[in-house]
Amino acid sequence: MKPSRLIRGENGPMFLVLLTTIVAVFLVELLFVRGSDITKVAFIKPMNISNVLMQISITGMMAISMTLVMVSGGIDLSIGQMMCFLGTAMAYMMKNVGLNDWTVVIFGLVLAVVFQVLMGFIISRTKLEPFIVSLGFMSMYKGFTYLITNGREITIGGKFGFLGKTYINITDDFRLGMPVIVLLLLCVIIWLVLKYTKFGRSVYAVGGNENAAYLAGINVKNLKLWLYALNGIFVAIATMASLSRMGTGNPLMGEGKEIEVIAAVVVGGTALSGGKGNVWGTFIGVLLLGCLSNALNILGVFPHWQYVLRGSLIILAVLLSYYSGQRASSVKSPVLTGQRSVAK
């Protein structure tokens, strides 16, 4: 992909915002914190980049499937609490029932799919808003989590390390953790699915116009159902990575994740109304929010102020992408969007 295409494409505006942010953070740290000594700038040290990638990987996995759900016009607020529920349930099974790793993996996936199919069934077969239904499930998951844990952590004693604690060392101080590799793999797979399959077209069609999609022969109800089920699978994978990394089933392990994920997806250019969005946009969104958190830590911003700054920057980023997107879509010149025109 040529750089020019990156900038002019659908994700171009957000990509520019990401680049600008990175350069800005670098300059601020260089000039105001490290006294212009480039060797001391922590933000661009390979080890820090490895860490940022690791930190975004779990949010990233959930954001990919959330992109699918949101492109189809839905939303799922339950994912954070579902992570708490799945994580603690899996830890419980490992510690108190003594299931082995692979059985727990299957247990986690089945549990996630069963609940999400139930939720997808309700959303697709009734006229209820996915917002409300998933809000209900969110509360149910929270209840289950506390029923399982009674509010205490369940340690899993170093088991299950493969997914969270394996690294590929690329140089001495730059390494890719397994969750990062899984995230990249999932991104590529879903990108290909959206671009080159009938299923992908149907997701956009349903989000674009549900009526027209139905009359075009798409089984709208089942498509929605399977999207929520798929979302469950992705959350289960993210939960396993998180469980493995922390080594403990914490009842707060997914707390607030839904906000983080939805923010990243929206920053990445997915429309809340559906029909628009893509995986790489979401990837950029996740990366942008990850860099911001990291930068605020490095720059030593007082933690309470970090929330305020992060919130304002999310709004600013969405504003920027909205206005640049509007400009791009009002200029219809095929040359500018890099597209061929049709000879009359």
Binding site: K198, Y204, A205, G208, A212
Partner: peptide, 18 residues
């Protein structure tokens, strides 16, 4: 009938895929 926000290249082939 239409997916208004989508380009013609997505509007026209959709039924054929399905």
């Amino acid at each position: 009938g239409l997916f208004l926000k989508h380009p013609l290249s997505m509007n026209i082939p959709i039924v054929s895929y399905v």
